[in-house]
């Protein structure tokens, strides 16, 4: 099991860098994950809007939202989503929003 250091405590990640326990997610932790797992030094306003929407969607529906839903609700073009999260909506954005890794070809 991989792990990262977060404020002096050890946070466990699955082998693919997703939180082992999605319930412990905080925005502060997201920023650490962004730096250490995705190489994103600073999360901007658009990053946060996408991350918060995905997190909320997961809490309400127990699933990651469609990328269509991300674009429509957050008000960002599809192209921007891929630019904001180079690893893509699943392995990038969903990971930073503290979701478990989505099933399927991802």
């Amino acid at each position: 099991m991989a792990s990262i250091d977060f404020n002096g405590t050890t946070v466990e990640l699955n082998p693919e860098g997703f939180l082992a326990n999605p319930a412990i997610w905080t925005e502060e932790l997201a920023a650490v994950l962004a730096r250490q797992e995705e190489g994103i030094e600073n999360l901007g306003e658009q990053h946060w809007a996408v991350i918060r929407f995905i997190r909320q969607h997961w809490l309400e529906h127990d699933s990651a939202p469609m990328v269509r839903s991300i674009c429509k609700t957050v008000g960002v073009p599809l192209k921007t989503v891929y630019e904001l999260f180079p690893s893509g909506p699943a392995k990038g954005a969903c990971k930073l929003a503290g979701l478990p890794k989505p099933d399927g070809c991802v």
């Binding site: 990328v67 269509r68 399927g104 991802v106």
Partner: peptide, 11 residues
């Protein structure tokens, strides 16, 4: 199609 397309990579 592969569900990955509509879900995350629709281009």
């Amino acid at each position: 199609v592969n569900p990955r397309e509509p879900k995350f990579f629709p281009l």
